[in-house]
Amino acid sequence: MATAAETLSGAMAPRPFRVVRRQRETGDTWTLELEPVNGEPLDFVPGQFTMLYAFGVGEVPISICGERGGPLVHTVRAVGAVSEAICASRPGAVLGVRGPFGRGWPVEEALGLDVVVVAGGIGLPPLRPALYECLRRRSEYGDVVLLYGSRTPADLVYRREVEAWRSRFDLEVDVTVDRGEGDWRGKVGVVPKLIGSARFDPGAAVAMVCGPEIMMRFAAEALLARGVPEDRIYLSMERNMQCGLGHCGHCQLGPTLICRDGPIYRFDEIEPLMKVREL
């Protein structure tokens, strides 16, 4: 019989984590806070993901969205059977966690430079730990800018927190939506459009971009047009990730395995691959 230690070494066996808090972000998106049923909390670097398991239903890759040292936080959009089951997990429920996996955001490389965070839709959660890191060590970075876009005002996640960030003097926040519904008085337009007027020094900035692949392509173009070097632009890629270990072959993107070499890539590494259709 496998002992507990062997169980963990298996890398395929999820660790039980209990949901301690659950909060609705939008119509189909929920944020869960999790704590391990036994043992140490999960350490991670911003940008990493876990494989999150709903008992008997299945497992999906979800970015870690919380602060280091705090509970494990995941913001999940219900788009399939597994993510629906995860979103439906109330406080007290137990989910399985494997990981963390992957290469994170360049928060160390960005020290001393301006940081431009560009998020589209559900792309903000994977970037939030990087923002937390910039704010935690605020004096070690130059200007920090968050540019965030979503489909409608109702699709914005972390709305209260974004409003709180906006009122800070040491963080520039700009938000836009594709469709201005309701009493929205903010910007209407795509998020890459915000890059042109954001305050940062393109020659001394690192950009971190996460969102739909097409949005990231346009954002990278806008960043390049501003003069950000292509090796200072980082994107988060998505493919079918099943094992997280580099063994199952599903998350291949040309010469790379996203779970192992990504999900965060430098634009100059990934750009030739993004241009190839159906790669």
């Binding site: 489909r151 969102g211 739909p212 097409i214």
Partner: peptide, 9 residues
């Protein structure tokens, strides 16, 4: 770009 409704399904 907005025509793509890129945040949708």
């Amino acid at each position: 770009l907005r025509l793509l409704d890129m945040y949708g399904d």
